[in-house]
Nucleic acid binder design. Structure first.
Length: 489
RNA sequence: GGCCCGUUCGUCUAGCGGUUAGGACACCGCCCUCUCAAGGCGGAGAUCACGGGUUCGAAUCCCGUACGGGCUACCA
């Protein structure tokens, strides 16, 4: 029981779930699933200025979309709740009480102004700018008297004088050492009685029995402080694992400046959750150095912290796109249609009702576009020509193809063939068109491209014969007729 | 400023004392082909940040330097 792995993802709802946070969540999820452990979601909403309920919901939505199911947390409950930091004030108060009783915490009456001044002068001397422990020497009675008199104060951790260097084995970075004198008597509880971040996190992780703290690199420097708190509380230390940051293409920390950074933005751009998950997993972890495409199950099976990379990784949109294409190609026609319909409806190319009645038609379309799509939203420009009544012929395509010698006769011959074939399916269409070029003395490419431009408006389109079938005979002939005057000879 | 972490093709990475430094994306060429893709084959691309050690031998171990990042709050 006490052996079982308990990990947590603890986002602060000050924004949407971003790429970096998502990767942290994925690693935690994978770690828990690998060991059959428990994955906890805890919302660190203690910043009232920036935390919103809306962001909390967005984060939960994004996690659901990625398929990161958690065993304890908002909505699912669990025996270590509540899972919102703002609802855990009691446990912080209890923890402080324990520290007071043990003499591991003391009140500090220094004002912020005094502290700023001290910090400034300490830094000017070029050294460590931690708290100078002034209030530590105030005796218990006078401290109690000052508190009773209502003097504003915070509670600080009394770091043991004899505490040596703080060394801990980080599961991804190896042993990390902090000299004893760089950790000061940090504030645990503020003047207003609320817990500081380091105190809250530590108390939460301890009381929630978290065994492995897997989080971003930005918390590495907080770790010695938290270790001291664990020790003061007499709690067992978890295993720490710090993940490197994800950087933008310019090598700077990923931010809004780099464009889309939230998971939901990627969803809206037509990325599949399994692709995003796969890509993010690969950004800082490798299965064996060879395997790049793998399912979430494979990830869970193989995930281990010792294969997590120590270097920061630059986010590469192109590789994500490629991977997304891989997943799109792997889908069945049924699956692709299911994913594509909302996009088509959204773009008003088709109504939700039509999507149902024309299901068979859509199923024929799916294989034509699946190997051409990297993102779901690319389907709109790709198939728009199938939905409108008329089309506009792209000028460059017109020049390149319809001005070519022989395009006119080819169009005439193709039109005639298409008008007379008994059935208008891809196979029959192909058979009929295949014999046209030789008969009228033009190259196949010239003839087919002429038909393509006439019917789709562009030199680039899904496969021609299949496209014509889906377009239907009537519309095909109308379009060829409309384009005919634009063709040469 | 102080402390901590990091540095292998453009990018993500494999490598954990002896390899022609491997794979993937991107790029280039050829093949396939009704266009575009997809696919197949091949190519180019890394003085393993730099400088010292240790060793018969170092991308791998140690020490510096440079560069990048993080923390340094009564933010999280």
């Amino acid at each position: 029981m006490s052996e079982s792995v308990r990990v947590r993802f603890a986002p602060s709802p000050t924004g949407h779930l971003h790429i970096g946070g998502a990767r942290t969540a994925i690693y935690n999820w994978a770690y828990a699933r690998h060991f059959g452990g428990t994955f906890v979601l805890r919302i660190e909403d203690t910043d009232p200025e920036r935390s919103t309920e809306e962001n909390t919901q967005a984060i939960i939505r994004a996690m659901e979309w990625l398929g990161l199911d958690y065993d304890e947390g908002p909505g699912v409950g669990g025996s270590y709740g509540p899972y919102f930091q703002t609802q855990r004030a009691e446990s912080y108060a209890e923890a402080l009480e324990r520290l007071k009783v043990e003499g591991a915490a003391y009140p500090c009456f220094c004002t912020p102004q005094e502290l700023d001044a001290k910090r400034e002068s300490a830094r000017a001397l070029g050294g460590f700018a931690g708290y100078d422990r002034t209030c530590r020497s105030i005796d218990a009675e006078s401290a109690a008297a000052r508190i009773a008199a209502g003097e504003p104060h915070v509670w600080r951790l009394k770091v043991p004088e004899d505490r040596g260097d703080i060394v801990f084995p980080d599961a991804v970075r190896g042993d990390v050492t902090f000299a004893a004198d760089v950790v000061d008597d940090l504030v645990l509880v503020r003047t207003d009685g609320t817990a500081t971040y380091n105190f809250a996190v530590t108390v939460d992780d301890a009381t929630m029995a978290i065994t492995h703290v897997v989080r971003g690199d930005d918390h590495l420097s907080n770790t010695p402080k938290q270790i001291l708190i664990y020790e003061a509380l007499g709690e067992k230390l978890p295993v720490f694992a710090h993940l490197s940051m994800i950087l933008g293409a310019d090598g700077k920390r990923l931010s809004k400046r780099h464009g889309a950074t939230s998971v939901e933005a990627y969803r809206d751009m037509g990325y599949l959750p399994e692709a995003v998950m796969n890509y993010l997993a690969l950004l800082g972890w490798s299965l064996d150095g060879e395997t790049t495409v793998f399912s979430r199950e494979t990830l869970a099976e193989n995930f281990s912290l010792d294969r997590v990379s120590r270097n920061p990784a630059i986010f590469d949109d192109e590789k994500l796109e490629w991977l997304n294409g891989v997943y799109i190609r792997e889908m069945s026609a049924e699956q692709l249609v299911d994913r594509i319909v909302p996009v088509l409806v959204d773009a008003s190319l088709i109504s939700a009702d039509e999507a149902v009645t024309r299901r068979a038609w859509l199923l024929k379309l799916a294989p034509m576009i699946s190997e051409r799509l990297k993102r779901l939203d690319e389907v709109v420009p790709m198939v728009a020509f199938l939905f409108s009544d008329g089309i506009e012929i792209d000028e460059a395509s017109r020049q390149k193809v319809l001005e070519k010698e022989g395009s006119g006769v080819a169009l005439d011959a193709c039109r005639a063939a298409l008008a007379t074939i008994p059935t208008f399916d891809a196979e029959t269409i192909e058979a009929a068109l295949r014999e046209v070029p030789e008969r009228v003395g033009v190259k196949p490419k010239v003839a087919f491209q002429a038909v393509r431009v006439a019917t789709t408006g562009s030199t680039v389109s899904p496969p021609l014969f299949e496209s014509l079938e889906l377009l239907g005979r009537e519309q095909t002939l109308v379009r060829i007729d409309a384009a005919r005057p634009l063709a040469t000879s």
